[in-house]
Nucleic acid binder design. Structure first.
Length: 531
RNA sequence: GCCGGGGUAGCUCAGCUGGCUAGAGCGGCGGUCUCAUAAUCCGCAGGUCAGGCGUUCGAGUCGCCUCCCCGGUACCA
């Protein structure tokens, strides 16, 4: 799946710390995390990097508003972001803040390398300048503000020309096109690739990469009056975060990245500007860039689908859902309901409905059923001759199923993979109980009842393994409900282990039970109360 | 305008390089079990696959045209 052997370096986009993360940003992180967890299961040595993009003009502004030093402000925001990511079980290995020294050092080294390569020249940037923001406004912003700055409608914009440095992006057009052709998998999914292809084929303009007069940010080494501008600075986090300019050995070990997970809106920066920058600096390119879709908010009453925005007042904070439901439920909803490469929708009502149907009634309920019967009919412990533990999945080509689910998860087709797991693993387990009726067999044919229950143990083991990247906690509860861990330790389980025969020797329930029952994994909720 | 992506059952989505009577989940309706979180399981519900033309023995699945929705259009999360 990756040609970099057993190492897998995956990144997510770094976020502006102006406001706290919402469910859309969480969507990206979870999608990347599922991949990271999956690759770890497959035996890769995974490094997952996340971070915040702090060298923006809004940072000192916001800090001032809150009466803080910029540094204190970004540190506090970084802590808050990480709290959310941890609550969502995002298994990141490192978190970079672009205000950190390691980033500054690496940035300066990089821009100097590009400068030395002759790809940076001094030019004039001209645009609408807002004295209130002390910044240039884009044409789009000006249009939105009907000719004025959206933030300062009473301050007239002035047309200002400024000397600053340009990166010779246009010079890389041919090389970029050659790279896309030679590596068709470079841009994912397909739709994003087409978009970039036509963009680069049409025209590439040089980009200004420095600005004048900012105290906050990274100074340009060859001209201390200039500060490195947003994109040139931000993209570099992917290399400064693994030691570029500060730890050569580590950088050599981890670069190039196997996967940049980003939002579809910033595809061009990652698929055109970034590779060109790397080419100029003489560094290898990342193997893939995945531009995921967006999460929209569906208004329950009107049925209207809207963008998440502060002004519409429809922003949903991840912690709200985590507290009301659980991180597992949060992860499950977005991974199963929103195709990662496309757009998805969120509503509280639908969230609760999916939660009840797939998690409470299926995953959770069958856990309770199985364990209760084990306790009641076998006193939690298996004795006697081994039985055929694969009865529950007769009629399913389990080998083919595991193979295709692996491919789908590896290709970020999470919603499809989960649907298959539910339809061909989770639900057959429930149907098996219904068809064999172990609760009746217990009275008429204890041996047959025992065989059914052994099958259910195998079912739980297989389910645990397959859902592990998506629902790490639940998967672990499933796996540790029996002493499976003695045969294959939980942290070393691979997808292929779902196919290995169940070890029935000494098999027994290890889940905590009270009065012969486990605590519900996903307590059912009222759909109406969801919001 | 230009470029790109879409339009498949009430809702959310699958349908790979064209081929059995177009699928799943949810919702809805009827029935069932009792191990379980009043959960499960079974059956039913019939959508001109946006519309038209064409290629083909055969098209959601390819080509062209029309309508509608969305995104991008560059230094913007």
């Amino acid at each position: 799946m990756t040609d970099s052997g057993d190492r897998y370096y995956i990144t997510t986009a770094i976020d502006y710390p102006n406001s706290r993360p919402h469910i859309g940003t969480a969507f990206e992180k979870i999608g990347a995390d599922v991949q990271a967890r999956f690759r770890r299961m497959e035996g890769a040595s995974v490094h997952m990097l996340m971070g915040n993009d702090e060298n923006t003009i809004k940072v000192p502004q916001r800090a001032r508003e809150m009466g803080l030093e910029p540094r204190a402000y970004v540190d506090d925001m970084a802590r808050q972001f990480q709290d959310v990511w941890r609550a969502l079980e995002i298994s990141f290995d490192d978190f970079i803040q672009t205000s950190e020294e390691r980033h500054h050092v690496g940035c300066r080294k990089f821009i100097q390398a590009v400068y030395d390569a002759g790809d940076i020249y001094k030019g004039k940037y001209a645009g609408h300048y807002c004295t209130g923001c002390e910044a240039f406004k884009t044409e789009k912003e000006v249009a939105e503000g009907s000719g004025k700055c959206p933030n300062h409608p009473n301050t007239p914009l002035t047309w200002v020309e400024e000397d600053n440095y340009y990166f010779r992006l246009s010079a890389y057009r041919e090389r970029l096109l050659a790279h896309y052709a030679a590596h068709p998998e470079f841009i994912q999914p397909e739709s994003r690739r087409n978009e970039i292809l036509s963009l680069v084929e049409s025209e590439l303009k040089d980009v200004a990469i420095t600005r004048k007069g900012f105290a906050w940010g990274i100074k340009t080494p060859f001209d201390p009056e200039q500060t490195i501008y947003v994109w040139f600075d931000a993209l570099l986090n992917y290399i400064t975060g693994i030691g570029y300019g500060t730890d050569d050995e580590r950088f050599a070990r981890l670069w190039p990245a196997d996967m940049h997970v980003i939002g579809k809106d910033i595809t061009r920066f990652h698929c055109a500007l970034w590779p060109a920058m790397l080419m100029s600096a003489g560094l290898p390119l990342p193997r893939m860039v995945f531009g995921h879709g967006f999460v929209y908010r569906k208004n329950e009453e009107t049925g209207e689908v809207q963008k998440l925005s502060k002004s519409l007042g429809n922003v949903v904070e991840p912690m709200e859902l985590v507290e009301k439901f659980s991180a597992e439920a949060f992860r499950y909803y977005f991974m199963s309901q929103c195709p990662f490469g496309g757009d998805g929708e969120f509503s509280f009502e639908r969230f609760a409905s999916v939660y009840n149907a797939d998690l409470a009634d299926k995953l959770g309920n069958n856990y309770s059923r199985t364990l209760t019967m084990w306790a009641r009919y076998l006193e939690g412990r298996l004795a006697g001759e081994p039985v055929d533990a694969t009865q529950w999945r007769k009629g399913i080509d389990f080998q083919a199923l595991v193979t295709s689910v692996r491919e789908q998860v590896g290709a970020f087709e999470y919603n499809v993979a989960l649907q298959r797991i539910w339809r061909e693993v989770i639900e057959p387990g429930q149907r098996f109980i219904d068809e064999t009726k172990p609760f009746k067999l217990a009275k008429t044919d204890p041996e047959a009842c025992r065989a059914v229950l052994v099958n259910l143990a195998d079912w739980m083991r297989a389910a645990a393994i397959l859902i592990k990247p998506f629902l790490p906690r639940t998967a672990e509860s499933y796996y540790r409900a029996f002493n499976f861990d003695e045969t294959t330790p939980w942290d070393r389980v691979r997808y292929a282990d779902a196919l290995t025969p169940l070890n029935q020797v000494g098999l027994h329930v290890t889940a905590p039970l009270s009065a012969g029952k486990p605590a519900p994994l996903f307590p059912k909720v009222e759909v109406r109360d969801a919001g």
